[in-house]
Write a protein that binds this DNA or RNA. Sequence first.
DNA 1: GCGATAACGATAACGGTTCTCATTCGCACA
DNA 2: TGTGCGAATGAGAACCGTTATCGTTATCGC
Lengths: 142, 142
Amino acid sequence: MTASREALSDLLERKGVRATPRRLEVLEELAREPDDVTAQQLWGRLRERDSGAGLATVYRTLGLLSESGVVDVLSHHGGEQCYRLCGDEHHHHLLCERCHRVVEVQECGLDDWVASAAERHGFVPTDHRVEIVGLCADCRSG
Amino acid sequence: MTASREALSDLLERKGVRATPRRLEVLEELAREPDDVTAQQLWGRLRERDSGAGLATVYRTLGLLSESGVVDVLSHHGGEQCYRLCGDEHHHHLLCERCHRVVEVQECGLDDWVASAAERHGFVPTDHRVEIVGLCADCRSG
DNA sequence: GCGATAACGATAACGGTTCTCATTCGCACA
DNA sequence: TGTGCGAATGAGAACCGTTATCGTTATCGC
């Protein structure tokens, strides 16, 4: 998922977010991460790379990025939120309950199911979230 | 969803949780609630009824109840958790984005979809969660 | 370069949750 | 009906993730 600094900069501008050096550092670190990370973890990794980014900036940037749809926010840890750089399209997540790996499921195909389930209770659906929890290939065999 | 004190007491014992008066108060208040509530809200309602239950006890009890599968925990508010007395069986939730009403969807029927989505990425699924967000019948017309 | 504005870092404040500990309660047993 | 012991409880402190504040610094249009 690692991307060039230019690509990430373009991504930000396209979303109407000014691409400052600090924001690029955060985004770059996020792109380096295959799974989801908490704000604090991300901050820790930035410090290891001798970035002077402050914790507040990390939170601000993650907030901006999630608002503009660049990152997904997962709250499966109860208490703290996890962030992940995700594709643009509607998708769901597979979570490994052992190693916490996160994999995107691009194929949704649940629209009909969602519509009928919602309709049965008088709801008009606007969105839906699915999380599949299980064991990933590595944890299954290891 | 209101249930007799005896039924609630039985429910606790059946789950291996000692049915103390305080715990019954909490459970009773939870049964009175059609939607989900936060721990703090629940505590507030107990105080209104002149219950002397402490906040710590409310948290402890909700923790116990969720561990033993008597209540569901929803973390859709980011930051604080919501609790809800739910049926025993596997189910999903419909959330009204306007009034925050929560409705259980008993019919799942997603096992095949889940299995194939997981398998496609090398996962063995153990559980899945679905939340449908939308507008309930009242908020749709109102 | 210059000025207005946005972004930034350090740190305090906030709010939900958990921990601590002294007290009380519930239950088994004498 | 006491008595003792472990579990449960309440008050409040501690904790921790997050957000707000504020003075400083960088950025961009001119």
